[in-house]
Design a protein around this nucleic acid. Structure first.
Lengths: 246, 246
DNA sequence: CGCAATGTTGAGCGATTTCAACTGCCGTGG
DNA sequence: CCACGGCAGTTGAAATCGCTCAACATTGCG
């Protein structure tokens, strides 16, 4: 299932720098964290609800998502994660997982033992702050999704997700020109937006017809960014991105 | 609007101890934080979206809630807060507020300057951990609400909120015997569950008729706790409460 | 007493779900 | 080489949960 492989943590620091200032010493410490890199296939659980992980994982390549299974057999996807993010950083301080983490695409993931992260936070308060900050922004994204699911109609809900993912990918250099890789299937999109796959399908057709967005061969193209933002009522404040560096 | 007044931070430490272990030194440091206590009327904004607060507030008495205003004039309530909680602790590391905080009832609130909290976290890593942990549990509650809004029907959604608030109040000694003070009006409940006030009203009538829950004179009584848990599909794991101490 | 805030009820409407069928694509194996 | 199966996507028709609009009841308070 999982093969050991090579990799480095540059994606991690690049990502942290998008919302926090770090000096070169701190960047070096972070990038030299002891870790074990694994390559994982798509649709593969990394951690399951109820477990007590001893490591956190930094995503180096691919997409991950977090989800919960609902009694009726359904699935709520709570977030998507792109390279440089640590989706289960919270397990460092909250022992029991209350949701699962899985790969959306084939992924390269760096596992870092909690003891090393603990050491880091004790000896480098500014890094601790940066990591804490990262989990706080995570929480802000949950709040935004909550508003989206509760208050936006299907169209705006999907449009908003497109806006969010494009900004997040763009800021770490993984998207430009209003195009991005889009490995999210309609079923996943449905599970993330609390809709049915059928309705996701119809809504995407709508977007196509209105000339806002098309998805083809795993690539999403935004044809009318202002209109998409308008439809989504997208305000990126909640992502708390630093301007300046690119 | 706000009158200075007396108070102490015992509620804060009592609350932190429900999910974290602290020694007596740490408790003392926390309870002796410099602060300014204010008494505020109900339905009064403490911080607004877009502001950059220099203090965080610990709630000593009353209920607070966090919310966002939606373009159509609506309001999404994202969380309720009870004594001992610090609803805007995240502003310590995320400068700009992406939502507002307001009083639901008349409240007594302790304002603590960020510089003092910063000092605290640098000199007391275990306290920093406890506070970080608290914000992580907060995020877990957002995830749970997201699932509720997206996946539960009106009945279960409201039932779940009742279960959650009862457990949170009970663990800090503010509720027992399946009864709790309930200052949440039907409109607030609607804004928190992404429903209309009309439908909240009908759903509460349903609960009454089925003999699950009644609300009278600001007191909510749970008549059939097992049935409520069942209807809500309530699993308190996400609250990450320590057992043991009461 | 009158007004404002909160709660209550009815009737019709609408966004989304459910159920079901069908298409196109791609890898596998005979 | 083609048959087959499975997966993802697409479309239609009927059902439903919750919304909207509107009226009315109740309570508390100046």
């Amino acid at each position: 299932m999982a093969e050991p492989s090579q990799g480095n943590l540059k994606a991690l620091t690049r990502r942290l720098l998008t919302n926090t200032e770090l000096n070169s010493d701190e960047i070096e410490v972070l990038e030299n964290l002891p870790m074990q890199v694994k390559t994982l296939p798509r649709q593969h659980d990394i951690i399951r609800e109820g477990e007590r992980p001893s490591h956190s994982c930094a995503l180096l390549e691919g997409w991950l998502f977090r989800y919960r299974v609902i009694p009726d057999g359904g699935r709520q996807i709570m977030s998507f994660h792109i390279p440089g993010e640590i989706p289960d950083l919270h397990s460092l301080h909250v022992a029991v997982m209350d949701h699962s983490v899985a790969t959306l695409t084939p992924c390269k993931v760096a596992f870092i033992a909690h003891e090393h992260l603990d050491n880091l936070t004790v000896h480098h308060p500014r890094i601790a702050m940066a990591l804490w900050r990262d989990t706080l922004i995570d929480a802000g994204i949950f709040r935004e999704w909550m508003v989206g699911i509760g208050r936006r109609l299907a169209f705006g809900r999907i449009a908003h997700l497109f806006c969010e993912m494009y900004r997040r990918l763009e800021i770490v250099g993984l998207a430009e020109g209003k195009r991005m890789n889009w490995p999210v299937m309609q079923i996943d999109l449905a599970d993330a937006t609390s809709m049915t796959a059928v309705h996701v399908n119809r809504t995407l057709r709508d977007m196509r017809r209105r000339g806002l967005v098309t998805i083809q061969d795993g690539v999403l193209t935004i044809h009318d960014w202002p209109a998409l933002i308008e439809a989504a009522d997208f305000d990126p404040t909640y992502l708390h991105l630093r301007e300046a560096q690119t």
